[in-house]
Structure formats: C-alpha cells, structure tokens
C-alpha cells in the first residue's frame, strides 16, 4: 500500500496545476522575522519571572504598492494554525511596521509553560502572531514566529549572519565574484548585472561563527551534540526568477559549481531586489538583500 500511495503521489505531483513559486514576490508578502536575541533568557527563580526583552524585525515586501505598512500582533501559547485563535492571548496591538522592542508579560510566559506537554523542556515557546497590511485589496498577510526563552545561564542561540554571495556562470566565477549585501535601497545601490535568460549561480556565505554547535535532547530524552544546518530561502521581485526556492548549507561547506540556487533575468530592462533569508533551525534567522538589473546577454 505504501508503494501504491507513493506512486500515486508522484503521479499527482507530475499532474499538479502550475502554481506560482514561493520565491516570486509579486504582492504583499512576509518573508522573514528576526528576533534578537533568538533565544532570550528569563530568571526562573524570581516570581514573577523576569524576562529579557526581544527586538523583533519583520521583513515584508510588496513590489506593487509602496504605501506604508502597519502591523498588528498578539502573544499566546503555540497553536496548530500559528494564529492566536484559541485559548488565552494578549490583546491585539496595532502600530506602524518597524523594529519592535517587545517585553513579553510574565503571565504570557507562564501560560505558554502551562499549555506545553513538555512544560518548557528545551525552552519555553511563546507564539508571536501578527498581520501586516498596506491597504492591499487582497487583505493582510499573516505570519508568526515562536519566541524562545530559556532559563538564565547556559549558551543561548545566536542569529546566523550573511556576509556575501558568490556568483557563478556555467560553474565559473561571474562578474565581481563576491558581492556584499546592499547597504542602501536599490535606488542608490550598485545592482548586479544579470544577463537576460542566463542562469547565474548563487552561493551565500555565512559570517564566521554563524554555524554553531549545541547540545540538545534527542527523541529518546538523552543529550546529544549537534551542529546547526542552516537553510537558505531565496526571493526575487518580478522580472527574474529563482531556480530553487530553498537550499541547505552543505554539510562539508562545499557547494556545487552552479551554486545552491540560480537567478535568471527574464524581462529586458527589469530591475529588482533579491533577498536571501537564512534560518538555523533553532529560531535564529536573518536576511540580506541585493539589487539586480537585467542586461542584454
């Protein structure tokens, strides 16, 4: 039966409607949320527990609409839907989109511990559920991030950081070879030239120390030492397309000659933004952006 199910699923995959790719940013989208620190700490000995603040930054984009964005957020225990749609939650708070210095109330932390089958084992998880809107008639974009809190002490997780990307064409270094993230908006930054209809390989590089080793608990309840396996997600505005939406950092650190993904300009004269988000699988993430423009091949 398993073989039969597998074969039917594969046939279904071959016959699936042609949906849009996740890497194509064509309307209001939330692409990432960064928590700094990604693993905050709290003092379990005090009552109520004292909790370190967390700065949250949301990466949202809408290439069609430059109107200011606003956000509304709530805190609750993690839910299956990733929205605070059942059980206790903080009152919704609305504000302009921008960095948010958040102080999680003690009662929200205690509620999250109470709702957890493992009672905070491996870190207390508080769900930050939000929506972003800019007047788009399709409505707001919804997102969530789990805020992780661990008792004071130990070695908390840090966000991975992107240093640069390496560009290749047909397996050979292309253009400047390595390009740091754009420091300013694309109106002022120097874009990457993308020859029309030519695949350019993308290989993100992390800053030293971004890939951490850590001790966690395995599925038998025993401690185990692991190394983070960062995953990259690629996004691009209209005019170009991404080859592979997401890719993992190779275990040996050596990427294929044509990069972990590819970007191809499809519309002559197009300009836009490329985002790469990196996630470490432990709640740590960050992103960087690059500007590009299509040029004749």
């Amino acid at each position: 039966m398993r073989t039969l199910s597998l074969s039917f699923l594969l046939l279904a995959a071959a016959c699936t409607p042609d949906f849009a790719a996740q890497s194509d940013v064509t309307d209001l989208r939330v692409l990432a949320v960064r928590a700094e620190p990604p693993e905050a700490q709290y003092d379990a000995t005090s009552s109520p527990p004292s909790i370190d603040p967390v700065r949250l930054t949301i990466l949202a984009a809408d290439p069609r609409n430059t109107s200011p964005m606003t956000m509304t957020f709530q805190l609750c225990a993690p839910t299956d839907s990733r929205r605070c749609d059942g059980g206790p939650a903080t009152a919704p708070v609305a504000r302009p989109l921008g960095p948010l210095d958040l102080q999680v109330p003690p009662e929200a932390l205690l509620e999250a511990i109470n709702a957890d089958d493992l009672k905070g084992f491996g870190g207390v998880r508080v769900q930050f559920s939000f929506s972003v809107e800019n007047g788009d008639p399709e409505g707001p974009a919804y997102g969530s991030k789990v805020l992780l809190f661990s008792p004071r002490g130990g070695k908390p997780n840090q966000n991975p950081l992107l240093e640069q990307i390496r560009l290749t064409r047909d397996g050979v270094e292309y253009g400047p070879g390595t390009v740091p993230p754009a420091a300013t908006s694309c109106d002022q930054a120097t874009p990457i030239d993308l020859p029309l209809d030519v695949e350019i390989g993308l290989r993100p590089d992390l800053q030293n120390g971004s890939r951490e080793q850590y001790v966690t608990t395995d599925y038998r309840g025993n401690p185990v030492s692991l190394t983070e396996q960062p995953r990259y997600s690629f996004y691009v505005t209209p005019g170009a397309e991404i080859g592979v939406d997401s890719a993992d950092e190779p275990l040996d650190g050596v990427a294929p000659p044509d990069g972990l993904s590819r970007i191809t300009a499809r519309v002559a004269g197009a300009k836009g933004t490329l985002w790469i988000v990196v996630r470490d699988g432990r709640g740590g993430d960050s992103w960087a952006s690059w500007c590009w423009q299509a040029v004749p091949a």
Partner: peptide
C-alpha cells in the same frame, strides 16, 4: 530527526 524539539526545520543525521 535527532532532536526531540526543533523550531521549524528538523535537523537530520
């Protein structure tokens, strides 16, 4: 997957 708990992306071995 080795970890008992993860945040979104399971690490495999």
């Amino acid at each position: 997957t080795l970890q008992l708990r993860n945040l979104g992306i399971p690490i495999t071995q």
